[in-house]
């Protein structure tokens, strides 16, 4: 997994550097440092250092096995967070938050339906009052307006 992460970084670094060399000039027409100077220097260093780190990682060999259960928990939390991000766009801030909390708490905090239900309602209400009413900051609007808030 570490090597995959480093490879992803390397790919990003190579693409960043490629754009810096293709699209951005090193010097301006007047001979001053251009918009490409910094990105090119940074990009080249990212690529070289990531290759170095990758070689180190390959030399070190396989990483110690970690508890699969913990990976599962993190992956689940990430997936739920991503679904929440999508739901925000579709249902808007309030409804998406109620749904997200209801689902996530029912998974993480099993066997306490009343506590989960209360939190799923009270937290979004508190956050709505804080952001929308007290701070005058908008909650995400949804494509489907279930509630008029």
């Amino acid at each position: 997994m570490r090597i995959a992460f480093l490879l992803a970084l390397l790919a990003g670094g190579v693409y960043y550097t490629y754009v810096a060399f293709i699209d951005l000039n090193f010097l301006t027409r007047t001979g001053r440092l251009g918009p490409g100077f910094f990105p090119r220097s940074v990009g080249v260093m990212i690529v070289l250092l990531t290759i170095w780190a990758l070689v180190d990682a390959l030399k070190e060999g396989r990483e110690a096995a970690t508890n699969a259960g913990l990976w599962r928990d993190v992956a689940m939390l990430m997936v739920l967070a991503i679904i929440y991000a999508v739901a925000l766009r579709v249902f808007g801030g309030f409804v998406a938050t109620v749904l997200y909390l209801a689902v996530t708490l029912s998974v993480l905090n099993r066997g306490r339906p009343l506590q989960n239900a209360l939190l799923s309602i009270l937290v979004p209400v508190a956050v709505y009052l804080l952001f929308d009413r007290v701070l005058n900051a908008s909650m995400p609007p949804g494509l489907i307006d279930i509630l008029p808030i």
């Binding site: 939390l77 929440y84 991000a85 801030g93 996530t104 993480l108 952001f131 908008s138």
Partner: peptide, 26 residues
């Protein structure tokens, strides 16, 4: 396990409230 989803909600809605931008939230 109770704090975690609440922190996700605060992070998300807090980020959105800055510029009302979905891109920034993603």
């Amino acid at each position: 396990r109770l704090l975690a989803p609440i922190i996700v909600v605060i992070c998300t809605l807090g980020t959105f409230s800055v510029h009302a931008s979905f891109i920034e939230t993603y």
